[in-house]
Design a protein around this nucleic acid. Structure first.
Lengths: 146, 146
DNA sequence: TCAGTGGGTTCTGTTTCAGAACGTAGCAGC
DNA sequence: GCTGCTACGTTCTGAAACAGAACCCACTGA
């Protein structure tokens, strides 16, 4: 099977990866969540090559994760902003970061600190059950085909 | 910058992607969480080609996300099982799945249903603040360099 | 003796990628 | 009017990664 065909699988993980699973795509989104909007800035901050970045931005726009908006005329200039669909990827980004903080630390501690604005405490991101609100690990869950 | 060098960045997201960001790796882990342990089964269920699968299993083992264990002798047979480090990737998998359920539905509903064993309710996975326990979205968080 | 199983490796043609160069449409300074 | 500078890409070329098929090896069972 070709990687480009995983979007057709009946699996939400595979379908999500067909949108955000390409090389560099997650780093583009990381920068989007940090407020980056312009091609040059994405290029510099992610390190992706220009052709690949152009392709990723095109695809993310087609998938409605980003929205391409003109911010200047003559010549036309566009920037890329997260849509609601894109903003909803935040838990993915945060869980990747959280795992890296815990398991990929080189001894110098987490590169970024997240503060929960509502309680002013450290975010300490947790996977919780939406029904009872308790924290959840892999062992607490049963999966059944729908 | 080459993709193979992102592990050296001072960013937990980039570092995590250096472990789980290759094509097929997430699908291998998806199957691991479903209990799959053997090469042939991974190959059939993920759709990755045999050389790529072999390489991914090798790398995940080197990164201590999976552990390679002999389950038979003459000839030796090995299986791949999640370590604690691997099990801790569960929030990443679940958040990918949750986003796919919400945004990539083709009209036939979620392919898999998750039940939280503690409360017997649907998991409805949520990103929560570990300090106050409340649900969190992208807008509720401030990031500061450490 | 012959087929089947499990876990890979090897080989070959195709696809994707990295980096540099180029294009384009304006603007600022001189 | 000429020279750079900015922003956002596209084009080109050699290198790397991938997909699928074939093969290898050490057994087992018929």
């Amino acid at each position: 099977m070709r990687w480009s065909e995983i979007g057709g699988e009946r699996c939400s993980i595979a379908r999500t990866l067909s949108v955000v699973g390409e090389r560099w795509t997650m780093l583009v989104l990381r920068e989007s969540f940090r407020g980056v909007r312009r091609f040059e800035d994405f290029q510099q901050r992610t390190g992706a090559s220009r052709p690949v970045l152009a392709e990723r931005l095109r695809q993310l726009t087609a998938d409605e994760v980003l929205r391409r908006e003109r911010y200047a005329e003559k010549p036309d200039r566009y920037e890329y902003r997260l849509t609601a669909k894109g903003l909803d990827l935040y838990p993915v980004i945060v869980s990747l970061m959280s795992w890296g903080d815990r398991w990929m630390d080189d001894g110098s501690g987490p590169p970024l600190r997240l503060t929960h604005l509502a309680c002013e405490g450290p975010l300490a991101p947790t996977l919780a059950c939406g029904t009872c609100g308790d924290p959840v690990t892999a062992r607490d869950v049963r999966a059944t085909p729908a």
